[in-house]
Write a protein that binds this DNA or RNA. Structure first.
Lengths: 202, 202
DNA sequence: CGTTGCATGTAAGGTGTTACATGATTAC
DNA sequence: GTAATCATGTAACACCTTACATGCAACG
């Protein structure tokens, strides 16, 4: 973020993250922002000064250094990209749906859909602000990605809701029958064998 | 997982998580599995015993207790669901695309697409094993969700790749013009005002 | 008889949060 | 004047990973 060359404060960075980064990565807490900025400065990647000493607020603003520019270049060009990581609480709850009831599950997923819709609406509005600035061209396509991502998330959740009742019937049919197969130790090997039999590539 | 009523070891749980949970939530490291199981036992939610003492391997298997069943019921029915959290490294890299080059970006995203395709293929194969067991009816719909999620992730990434060049042109056009608007302190307020002007609900 | 998989754990450290503490400025 | 926002930080702790350490069993 400092690589935008602007002098920014910790507060600015947190707001920037809330505005766009949180929709596809994460938004740090204030306390982390402030401690990371200190760490960055100790590494020599940024230099800070107090801005607006008289009249203005007590803001500590950071500016990127040459070493910081070199480091961020290496990050952008050479650093390995971690695979995306998704922690989807609503879906995990669904995966353990047999501990709950179909109605509770569907209500939970409908709430999830509402939240996603709110986020989708929010980023659609925020993305408008990014349209005007050529400097934010890349931030803009990321935000448009997030908008489409929310749309897809919403559709997938709606499909899931429609599948709950059928899953519950299958589950209960299994319980009624006297044999109720459960995960057994060693069944992983069986699955692995099935997988290897199906796979020729990889 | 213990609520499936089967006696399971830490190793079993890790393999179970690798098989399905990791596609929509996360898979813990072995070391965390073992320490969490101890914690769960100390809380009285599970009881362990050594299995296969003579002849077999030294396995510590855990079984859920009544207190554990009560706790997991409360979790399944009443515990608030955290909003899904997505950490998408490839997309963050794209959002800071002006620090890289269009070609580097596109190659990075193509690699991302390859990885997603591999995961999609993998869960499609694994989900087959869940078809047979009525007890896994809910796990199955979660895995099918994940399959569709990967399909959507792939399409979204492909669209992103197609948008890179246009974004780069906009970015460079901004640099050529003498005015290159950057994020300014205080511009968040302006955005908030725009947002409030557009919003009537929320 | 050596590689892979099964199986369990400890120690150290990184990442990130919540709670707490403080105080100035702006808007209504 | 009081509520919201701007603004910065410390302390404690939760969560999770990597590196390390160990040993047995099964497969070819």
């Amino acid at each position: 973020m400092l690589a935008y060359e602007e002098e920014v404060s910790g507060y600015d960075i947190k707001k920037w993250a809330d505005w766009s980064l949180r929709h596809y990565y994460w938004s740090p807490s204030f306390s982390q922002v402030y401690s990371e900025l200190k760490r960055i400065e100790n590494h020599g990647y940024a230099a800070s000064r107090m801005a607006g000493g008289d009249g203005g607020r007590n803001r500590r603003v950071y500016k990127i250094t040459d070493a910081g520019r070199r480091a961020v270049r290496i990050w952008a060009l050479d650093a390995p990209v971690d695979p995306p990581m998704l922690k989807h609480g609503a879906l995990m709850r669904t995966a353990f749906g047999h501990l709950s009831t179909p109605d509770t599950l569907k209500a939970m997923l409908r709430e999830h859909v509402d939240r996603v819709e709110a986020l989708q609406h929010r980023i659609a509005v925020d993305a408008v602000a990014a349209e005007a600035e050529p400097a934010w061209a890349y931030a803009r396509i990321a935000m448009r990605w997030a908008e489409r991502y929310y749309a897809s998330e919403r559709e997938l959740a709606l499909e899931l809701i429609a599948e709950i009742d059928a899953a519950d019937e299958v589950f209960n049919a299994g319980k009624r029958g006297e044999s109720f197969p459960r995960p057994r130790p060693g069944h992983w090997r069986e699955i692995e064998e099935q997988v290897k039999a199906t796979e020729d590539d990889d």
